[in-house]
Design a protein around this nucleic acid. Sequence first.
RNA 1: CGGGGCGUGGCGCAGUCUGGUCAGCGCACAGCGUUCGGGACGCUGGGGUCAGGGGUUCGAAUCCCCUCGCCCCGACCA
Length: 477
Amino acid sequence: MKKLTPKSMDFSKWYVELIRKAELADYAPIKGMMVIRPYGYAVWENIQSLLDKRIKQTGHSNAYFPLFIPESLLQKEIEHLEGFSPEVAWVTHGGREELEERLAVRPTSEAIICQMYSKWINSWRDLPVLINQWANIVRWEKATRLFLRTTEFLWQEGHTAHETYEEAQKETLMILSLYKEFVETELAIPVISGKKTEREKFAGALDTYAIEALMSDGRALQMGTSHNLGQHFSKVFNIKFEDRNQDLQYVWQTSWGVTTRLIGALIMSHGDDSGLKFPPRVAPIQVIIIPISIGDWKENVLPVVKNIKSILDQAGMRVKIDEREEFTPGWKFSEWEMKGVPLRVEIGPRDIKKNQALLVRRDTMKKETFHLDSLKEKVPEILEEIQGNLLDEALKFQMENTNGTQNYEEFKAIIESKKGFIKAFWCGSEACEEKIKEETMASIRVVVLKEEEYKPVGKCAFCEKKSEDLVYFARAY
RNA sequence: CGGGGCGUGGCGCAGUCUGGUCAGCGCACAGCGUUCGGGACGCUGGGGUCAGGGGUUCGAAUCCCCUCGCCCCGACCA
């Protein structure tokens, strides 16, 4: 395990090296595909359980739909088909037999789920339908990148059906704020949220909303999307119900998802030149205990260490003891720093005599000794502090790298020199959006949602027309 | 998919221009011993059809052609 390429020297190299050295993932022998290794998968499992809880608390249930979607179903919603067809993988044969109809490997599941919803929904009494699934997705991307864009990825996709537009809209926005809360609380990554422009919205949606975060190289990353599908799908899939007035109506739908890309965001938001820095809430290992192996440590140190582990285990923490004899303590320190474990506990013979342990925080690298009896209280306290500190640091970074301007020349200068978010006004025309993207490579990440009490007015960053749409621009992944 | 770069034991590289003396180094790995509070050391040992295929040549890691993969910059996208 050698040193990492410094982040400031070559961000991409740093990112890929870190993923492989920390054993999060590895390249698979198929183009654009990766293996998520146990340590990386453990992060995903933590993300899953924390998010799944929220999804269920808001009334949704999990289900599972088929991996394959018949071509005829995918074709029903025309925008949807056109949006996804360039990246669909097709199954053409079953065994030796050519299939009568090609099967798409799901690039998303609207089509197959809508097909089922049309059978299940008859009355307003059947609504709302609130279903989520955890699944794998295949999109034949041209350029891939570990965790951020791979040919196959894991995600959760929620698919709901409602009686009215208002209800669907409420669901869409509820999920948007659920995502924001989840990502900020558990992943310690601050996000901005808002609506996508027509150009950036989901293929087949009425409106798309998203949360976006700033990575530490100054580029934005879409972290989650929530779509109000309107009646686009219900009309073509014939999802009708008899409403409270005995009139036949098409349902109003939503869909929303977050993916294994979140792991990429964790790496890029918090990582440094020593490696990963996992927020405690999603860290596979929260506390690594390193017994200092000197002299008769096995008799004197190890039993104490094991006792501490069991106390912390019982308090609900994820704790590991590194008692490997083939590595020196110094080597282990570096290794676990690379792997982003939030808190290290060092205990050697010297400490045993004084009934103390040395605690080292991954985020600040600060060292402090504590009495062994206080660890049960101190450790969770420090973990909470680390969680908070990581969010604060990321928030500070986001604020420092968010600039406002109403002047296009200044806009261009900011994008070139500092990157980050640019908060600006936009007249709403696709032409301006397109021009800016062409000339600066910055796209509109989100249009800020209007609130009752706050209605800003300004002039479009490009054409200088009067505008009420405040937007965030950035160069994005 | 366009432009550029790269591909040599697990990882990082040298060797490629100028074909032969070239399968080499560091780390990692295995065994033994001494070590161990910030990436220890000694001795011994295992591992590579030089990304794959084809060609030129008496002879190819080295020259030519094709294919694949990875990285970077664009276009597209969770």
